[in-house]
Simulated assay, not measured.
Amino acid sequence: MFVRTASERDLGAIRALLVETWHATYDAIYGVERVTAITDDWHSIASLKARLTRPNSEFLVGDDGKRLGGMAFAAATTDPKTVLLNQLYVHPACQRQGIGQSLLTEVVASFPEMRTLRLEVEEANAAAIIFYEANGFRPVGRTADCGGSSGLPALILEKRLG
């Protein structure tokens, strides 16, 4: 798979990837109904489309020419040296093939001024935590409101660069 910038024509496939990945990852944690409600809100076509034009951000997909295997979205905070990795998801059938690593590498390359890459992750998502720690992220705190509007608790991880 190669990593490229997402476009409007990708939005349906990105939504499908996110819905399937979220159900595979979070149904056992939050329940099917809550995951469906979250994905209907956070991963609607309108919500995804808004990210395409967000200033100081990068919206990426992992694409093999036939399907999307992963996606990532990151945006600079008010401090351009700190970037928030809002999303990095790899389809369950494509995990452990280097797609997440490739997306993460491209996120870092997209923000040359960045010194800190920060993310929030559900504490029960052990596979994600292992992935991020293997890629240099360390816990720096917790939030009671993942994403700023979910009411879901999460760990805050950071990777220091340069």
Rank of each mutant, 00 (worst) to 15 (best):
I45R: 06
T53L: 11
S44M: 08
F73C: 06
A72M: 08
L68H: 09
V61F: 00
A50N: 13
M71G: 09
A75Y: 09
A46P: 05
A76K: 15
G65Q: 10
A74E: 00
H43P: 02
K49N: 12
A74D: 00
S47L: 04
M71Y: 06
D63F: 03
A72R: 01
T53G: 12
D63R: 01
R67M: 09
R51G: 04
T53H: 13
A50Y: 05
R51L: 15
L60G: 01
A74Y: 00
D41F: 12
F73W: 11
A50S: 14
I45G: 08
R51V: 05
D40R: 04
F59C: 00
W42I: 09
G65L: 07
I38V: 14
T39K: 02
P55T: 01
W42K: 11
S57G: 14
P55D: 08
G69W: 02
G70R: 02
G65S: 03
S44G: 12
T53E: 14
H43I: 05
R67W: 10
T53D: 14
S47H: 13
G70C: 12
E58G: 02
A72W: 03
G62S: 14
A72E: 06
S47K: 14
D40E: 15
A72I: 10
P55S: 09
N56F: 11
A46F: 08
L52C: 07
A75C: 11
D63W: 03
K49C: 06
D41A: 11
L52A: 06
K49D: 10
N56K: 13
L60Q: 01
A46H: 10
G62H: 01
R54D: 13
A75T: 08
K49H: 11
G70H: 05
A72V: 03
K49R: 14
R67V: 12
D63Q: 05
D40L: 03
R67H: 13
E58P: 01
I38H: 13
L68K: 05
R54A: 15
A50L: 10
R67K: 14
D41I: 03
G70N: 09
A74R: 00
R54T: 15
I45H: 08
G65F: 10
D40P: 03
R51S: 11
